[in-house]
Amino acid sequence: MPDSDAIRELASACLGQVGAPVTALRKIVESHGHIEDEHVRIVADVFNLSLADVRGIVSFYADFRTAPRGRKHIRICQAEACQSVGSRALTKEMTKALGLELGETSDDFGVSLEGVYCLGLCASGPCAMVNERILVHATREELLT
């Protein structure tokens, strides 16, 4: 099935649900990794919204990335509880080690680095996620292996 048909099917499946456009976009990110302009057009069409409406939704939410992330996607918590146990230093070490700032992806899409605000593990920081895996008491070594 061509990509655009799959996306249309995914979005259409959300019709009738509460908050459907947001859910549809979330599912596109889950299945496709990011949201492309073509997907925006499809979602606008399926939910009878303007392109501006859908672009507005996409730009509002942090999860709705519009470019591919790295195969290894590292997210480090930037919020206060993790700050209190060294997340700023950890972030600095990681940006240096990877040559990437927060929000950047390496040219070969091998790795991307991102900040996240709270994973709800605030007594065990600094916290991070590598793809879907949660790390507590995270260290530079762990994040790099």
């Binding site: 509460v18 456009p21 947001v22 507005g56 999860d63 709705f64």
Partner: peptide
């Protein structure tokens, strides 16, 4: 029904949350 957000702290504010639940910008 369970609705999953999309990464926006402000959606913890109740009216922003309602907007988001209606499928809009929060």
């Amino acid at each position: 029904e369970l609705f999953i957000g999309a990464g926006a702290y402000i959606c913890g504010e109740e009216t922003s949350l309602l907007e988001s639940l209606e499928g809009k910008r929060g």
